[in-house]
Amino acid sequence: MQAANRLQKSLKASSPAYGGWQMLPGTNLTRVICRASTNMDWLLVDLEHGNISDDSMHEIVAAAAACGVSPVVRVVDGQDWMIKRALDSGAHGILVPVLETVKDARNVVRASKFPPMGTRGFEPLLAVEKFVEQHAHSGYVKELSGREYLEQANDSLVIAVQIETQLALENVKEIAMVPGIDVLFVGPFDLGVSIGHPIVGGEMDETLELAIQSVQEAASDAGITAGIYCDSGRDAKGWAAKGFLMNSVMTDMIGLREAVSQSFNSAK
Rank of each mutant, 00 (worst) to 15 (best):
S112W: 09
R147Q: 07
L24M: 15
E174R: 14
I60K: 01
F131D: 00
L87M: 11
I195F: 06
A63Y: 06
W81S: 09
E206G: 10
A153H: 00
I181D: 01
V73S: 03
L184R: 06
I212R: 02
G243W: 03
K113H: 05
G238P: 08
D231V: 06
S248W: 02
K173F: 12
T225H: 07
H197Q: 06
W239Q: 03
H137P: 06
Q213E: 13
W239V: 07
L24E: 08
D88P: 11
I175R: 05
K84R: 12
Q8V: 10
I159V: 14
V161A: 03
R120C: 00
R257P: 00
F185Q: 00
G26R: 11
I254V: 11
A136V: 12
G196S: 05
K142L: 13
E164V: 15
S10F: 10
L99I: 11
V141I: 13
S89P: 07
K84E: 02
T225K: 09
Y140C: 12
G93K: 01
V132K: 04
M250E: 00
F189D: 05
E123Y: 15
A64M: 14
Y149H: 05
D54M: 14
A160M: 09
K84I: 11
A218L: 11
A65I: 08
K268L: 09
S266I: 04
A240R: 06
S53A: 14
S248N: 01
L47G: 11
L24Q: 09
L157T: 06
S138L: 13
S112K: 04
M117P: 02
K103V: 09
R85C: 05
R35L: 15
E59L: 15
S10H: 14
A136D: 02
A3T: 09
R257T: 04
P179V: 08
M57K: 05
Q79Y: 06
G139M: 13
N154K: 04
L126M: 06
A62L: 10
P116N: 05
R234P: 00
D221T: 11
R35G: 09
T119R: 05
A259W: 10
M177H: 10
A4G: 06
S89R: 04
E209T: 13
M82F: 01
A91D: 01
V172A: 10
E148A: 09
A226M: 04
L125W: 09
E217C: 12
S53D: 07
I60P: 01
I33G: 04
M250L: 07
L87Q: 04
V98L: 14
E151S: 10
K242Y: 06
V215F: 10
G90H: 00
F244E: 00
N171Y: 12
L150D: 00
R257G: 03
